[in-house]
């Protein structure tokens, strides 16, 4: 079926609009950080309460992730400027994600297939998932000021995707015409997008740690970041969602490879690098359960894991030749 040029054109416009909105949103996050006070020392000490009702006395203590939970600061009208900027930033991110989604849907409609057939489309999808994953984690953790740090890699990836890696809308080759394309590639790229969040959180964990050991390091950035405990929990809770998803994606890939290439596993460069990434994330989960490996080392492993994922995305698609070379570039 021929490509619908008008839809393809509009998809491209939506893509550019999404990138623009993300950049704008990034500035709002940065403005929030600039106008806001330093991150409050999040209440690590247990909150105590005494409630008396109907002749009953109740006292309680609880700690947990709750210190990280988003707090409503002030009511409408008397919110500080930073708070208002931060809320605008989040609203812009949501808008950007909506336009971004539109761009992907239009692309799919234009080419009459699942819009994950080449590197440009893949990259776009990964970024959308990363933004959505971050917005979901935002509901559970007080991490709004991290927005800019999540959007920076998203912006870089989308910029590269829209310029260097851009591929005209077109149908895919017969080997890719399978419902496994939908399952395998969607799952793997979702996992990749989700794992961007812990990657960013772990980098910030290391920065925060360096700042706490020596306050001269990252003097401006360090105080604005959430506590290391929050960042660690954010990284862990996102990883334990992304890792099984990635595992599932690799299994789907093996099933597809069995029916397309004659074997379920053949040490193709892409497969090998996926294996390496899997092993690194497995090491991350183990390190959090090993004395002496928690904290900094675990964070480094998580960053390494995401680096391998990105390496797999770029290097394997663009530089080596393997069965997975569907980048559509060059």
């Amino acid at each position: 079926m021929p490509v619908n040029e008008m839809l393809a054109q509009n998809s491209q416009h939506a893509y550019v609009a999404a990138v623009t909105i993300y950049v704008l949103s990034m500035f709002f996050y940065l403005a929030e950080a600039a106008f806001g006070r330093k991150a409050e020392k999040t209440a690590a000490e247990p909150a105590k309460a005494l409630v008396t009702s109907g002749g009953a006395t109740v006292t309680g203590t609880t700690v947990g992730p709750d210190p990280d939970a988003p707090v409503n600061t002030g009511t409408r009208g008397n919110r500080p400027l930073a708070e208002r900027l931060g809320r605008m930033a989040v609203a812009l991110t949501v808008l950007g994600a909506a336009v971004h989604l539109l761009s992907i849907v239009l692309r799919g409609l234009a080419v009459h297939r699942w819009p994950l057939g080449n590197m440009y489309e893949f990259m776009s999808f990964v970024c959308l998932v990363a933004v959505i994953a971050w917005l979901i984690m935002l509901q559970r953790f007080q991490i709004r000021r991290l927005g800019a740090f999540v959007l920076i890699p998203v912006f870089i990836l989308m910029f590269l995707g829209g310029t260097v890696l851009y591929t005209q809308a077109e149908p895919v080759q017969p080997a890719l015409q399978s419902y496994w394309l939908v399952i395998h590639v969607t799952v793997v790229s979702t996992a990749c997008g989700v794992l961007l969040v812990p990657g960013v959180a772990s980098v910030l964990y290391l920065i925060k740690g360096a700042h706490e050991r020596n306050s001269a390091m990252f003097m401006r950035l360090g105080p604005k970041l959430p506590t290391q405990a929050t960042l660690d929990r954010l990284a862990y809770r996102t990883t334990i969602f992304g890792f099984p998803l990635f595992t599932f994606g690799v299994i789907c890939g093996a099933i597809w490879a069995e029916s397309a290439w004659g074997r379920f596993w053949g040490w193709d460069p892409k497969e090998t690098t996926a294996f390496i990434a899997w092993v690194v994330y497995a090491a991350y989960l183990h390190s959090r359960a090993t004395a002496g490996w928690r904290g900094n080392r675990a964070a480094i492993i998580n960053v390494l894991g995401f680096a391998v994922m990105i390496f797999n995305l770029f290097f394997i698609n663009l530089v080596t030749t393997g069965l997975h070379s569907y980048a559509g570039v060059g």
Binding site: W267, P269, T272, I316
Partner: peptide
């Protein structure tokens, strides 16, 4: 020990890397 298993996991990842970067006879 878990620590050894961790080191071995890293070694496995590292050892698998040349297979992705260098041409392989089997492929």
């Amino acid at each position: 020990a878990m620590r050894t298993a961790l080191v071995l996991l890293f070694l496995l990842a590292l050892a698998a890397l040349p297979g992705a970067l260098l041409p392989q006879i089997a492929l």
